[in-house]
Design a protein around this nucleic acid. Structure first.
Lengths: 192, 192
DNA sequence: GTCTATATACCGATAGAC
DNA sequence: GTCTATCGGTATATAGAC
């Protein structure tokens, strides 16, 4: 009889929070096991190595992001898609001061496995590709306004949101909303 | 007779590189001592605790930034000041793929000393305050163009440059130049 | 599937010789 | 000012009982 109803999910949930607050090398199996009231060895049963755990976490982020993008693309206008993206970034920070997964892993890029790094790259590309496509579409139909090429704008926005979540943790104030508001003012200059 | 001509400076130089590539918790006294061909205890003589070393590093960053800002403010036009800032960010990344000090510390904010955190906060504020002042001045004399309030724009730019350095390490390509180019295109729309 | 116990390695830090 | 030697703590990971 297991002590936890669905141990694997609970382990990943704790690991996810720890990753987004302390980075991949900033938490240990002990942090997870003590929070769940189990022992280290129990985690090793579900995730033999920490790399396995990290890989599962990043793939989870990818899948979640894919679903959010798919929903937005099929159901929302360009402006609503961008608004939802900005709002999600601000809300994730408000909830638990969490970093974006990519930002939380940047200091560990030299030590993680190739497969983990590849998945992280995919996660980053998912957002940038969707932003590029959405911005381009919005410029064509007049929903948004910006100069330069769409991919550069997409990278600029993505980088700024990641950085804003980090600066906000340092200042203890939500700069994500502020940066998002600045982008919206610039993109939505002409009311549709 | 010391084995190193100026041990303290050499230790800080190595520590600085390690901090900007692996984060504060991502390097050890051993990493530094092995690179310099000395022993751990020698580092502890100059920096009794790792917190002392970290504090010295952040204060060094502050002093360097203060000098760069003071020079720019006194000798350069608004556009030249912004150009110098963008170019410095891109060059620092090109040289050794280094993170900005603030971005390198965000996953360690929960474990570092209060004094280190305060210095880090000062470092971030130095750049944002200077950017705010410079943007406002440039908008008044027609050197640059942007909407919204200057401080929001300053935070947006600062956050984007920090994020761009991190994304660039993941992609193995210099997105810092690309993001800087996007900002320049937007800010310098009207040729002076 | 979870436990106890253990292996091995690394960490920051200190004492004392030179 | 640097060394050798060592301490206590923690990390990931494994073996084997239950």
């Amino acid at each position: 009889m297991p002590r936890l109803s669905n141990a694997k999910e609970q382990i990943m949930d704790r690991a996810r929070r720890l990753l987004q607050s302390h980075g991949f090398e900033g938490f240990s199996y002990r942090d997870i096991s003590s929070q769940l009231g189990i022992k280290n060895a129990a985690i090793h049963y579900h995730f033999p190595t920490k790399s396995d755990l990290g890989q599962a976490l990043v793939e989870d982020f990818c899948e979640e992001t894919r679903q959010q993008i798919a929903f937005a693309r099929e159901n929302l206008t360009v402006r609503k898609q961008l608004d939802a993206y900005f709002e999600r970034m601000a809300q994730e920070f408000d909830r638990d001061n969490s970093l974006c997964p990519v930002g939380a892993m940047t200091t560990s890029l030299g030590t993680i496995s190739d497969s983990m790094r590849n998945s992280l790259n995919q996660l980053s590309a998912l957002v940038v590709d969707w932003l590029t496509e959405t911005l381009e579409k919005g410029r064509n139909n007049g929903d948004v306004e910006f100069s330069g090429d769409a991919r550069s704008k997409a990278i600029q926005i993505s980088a700024a949101m990641q950085g804003a979540r980090q600066l906000s943790r340092l200042n203890c104030s939500n700069q994500v909303e502020r940066v998002a508001g600045q982008f919206k003012e610039e993109l939505y200059k002409e009311p549709s």
